[in-house]
Simulated scan of single mutants.
Amino acid sequence: MDESTAADAAAAAEAVAADDAAAADSVAEGNGDSDSSPGELMAQLETDLQQARDAALRAHADAQNIKRRAEQDIEKAHKFALESFCKELLPVVDNLERALEVTSGHDGSIKPIVEGLELTLKSFQDALKKFHIEVVDPQGEPFDPQLHQAMSMVENGEVEPNTVIAVMQKGYTLHSRLVRPAMVMVSKAPAGQ
Rank of each mutant, 00 (worst) to 15 (best):
I133R: 00
S109Y: 15
S152G: 05
A10D: 15
P190T: 03
G157W: 00
A12T: 01
H106N: 07
L100V: 04
V114Q: 02
E155M: 04
A70N: 06
V16M: 14
E83K: 05
Q50W: 13
E71R: 00
S152E: 11
D54K: 12
E83A: 14
V186Q: 01
S104E: 12
P112W: 15
S36Q: 12
L119P: 03
A166Y: 06
A150N: 05
D126Q: 10
M183G: 02
I110K: 00
V27S: 07
Q51G: 09
F80T: 02
D8H: 11
E141L: 13
A18N: 08
A63L: 07
R53D: 13
T47G: 13
S34L: 15
K67G: 13
P181L: 01
R98M: 07
P142A: 09
A55D: 09
A81P: 08
N162V: 01
K188I: 01
L82N: 08
K188M: 02
L119W: 01
A52F: 07
N65I: 05
S36A: 15
A127W: 10
S84C: 05
A77H: 09
G171A: 03
A21P: 12
S187F: 01
S187V: 00
L117I: 02
V179R: 01
F124P: 03
H175I: 00
M42P: 04
N162M: 12
E83H: 03
A18K: 06
A12S: 11
K122R: 10
